[in-house]
């Protein structure tokens, strides 16, 4: 990456503890538009904690977060959404009792036109319709959007969540284990969706335990271990074995 390029996201020395558990220790990295970054690490390495800091679910204890060169302090996930960052959370970001359409538009509901709209009536039909077409656009087909999410299979739910993230993201998409619950074919679909997002110039943070997927789709891979970044290199410099070794800490190849 050339240095005159402005990173869309930059983390400097981010640390975060939950009580006595140190989930993140001095994490720093830069992410650029049009780049897919694989974020890998063992269970409990701090991946989800990291993305929750970036998306505003948690605030860091120390360190700085820059978006497009400007330091930001999120008060809530709402702020990061406004800044064009969409997140698919590992621990389900969908409301099971709401319809597919209601979930897609959650937090961004549109009102009807005219007097009823001014009285606060939501454009429920329009949103349901648009949700379906938008999901199809990103290559995800789901049953009629009037169904509630609780009536979908695990994979279909995951598809809706991915579709929502892709649909709204302006600058950054964060996907925390998006291929969870998915079969082989659907996983490939998700990888295609990620590649398409890169083509559109988005920055994608892709978290997964399926290393071949990460090696296949990402441009750069960041390895977290026990809350620290232990390696941050272009994907070409990894093999499955070296990646596994770095994740587990058995091979001591680090970049510091």
């Amino acid at each position: 990456m050339s240095n005159e390029l402005q990173p869309i996201i930059e983390l400097r020395d981010i640390s975060k503890s939950y009580g006595s558990v140190k989930a993140l220790i001095d994490v720093s990295f830069k992410a650029y538009a049009g780049e897919v970054i694989g974020l890998v690490g063992d269970n409990g390495a701090g991946k989800s904690s990291l993305i929750k800091v970036i998306s505003g679910v948690h605030a860091q204890d120390s360190g700085h977060l820059f978006v497009d060169g400007i330091e930001r302090h999120w008060k809530s996930p709402h702020d990061s959404m406004e800044a064009g960052i969409e997140t698919l959370y590992q621990d389900s970001g969908l409301a099971p009792d709401l319809t597919i359409g209601a979930n897609i538009f959650l937090g961004r509901e549109r009102r009807r036109r005219g007097l009823l709209g001014r009285l606060g009536f939501l454009d429920q039909r329009g949103m349901e319709r648009e949700a379906l077409t938008e999901l199809e656009k990103v290559g995800i087909s789901v049953p009629a959007s009037k169904r509630t999410v609780s009536q979908l299979s695990g994979g279909q739910r995951q598809a809706v969540a991915i579709g929502r993230a892709v649909m709204w993201a302006k600058h950054v998409i964060i996907l925390d284990e998006p291929t969870n619950h998915l079969g082989a074919r659907q996983s490939q679909e998700v990888l295609k969706v990620i590649a398409a997002a890169r083509e559109q110039g988005l920055c994608v943070l892709f978290i997964s335990h399926t290393l071949p997927h990460v090696l296949e789709v990402s441009d750069r891979i960041i390895v977290l271990r026990l809350g620290r970044v232990v390696r941050d290199s272009p994907t070409a410099e990894y093999t499955v074995e070296s990646l596994l070794g770095t994740i587990t800490g058995l091979s001591e190849v680090t970049n510091n």
């Binding site: 996930p77 099971p96 209601a102 959650l106 937090g107 961004r108 606060g120 009536f121 939501l122």
Partner: peptide, 27 residues
């Protein structure tokens, strides 16, 4: 209001999954 407004929609979303509601930007 409960069934057609954003306030009502938020009410259902929070009861269904408050994390999802918060993550979607609802206070």
């Amino acid at each position: 209001t409960l069934h057609v407004s954003k306030y009502g929609r938020n009410n259902f979303a929070i009861g269904s999954n408050s994390f999802a509601a918060r993550a979607a930007g609802i206070n």
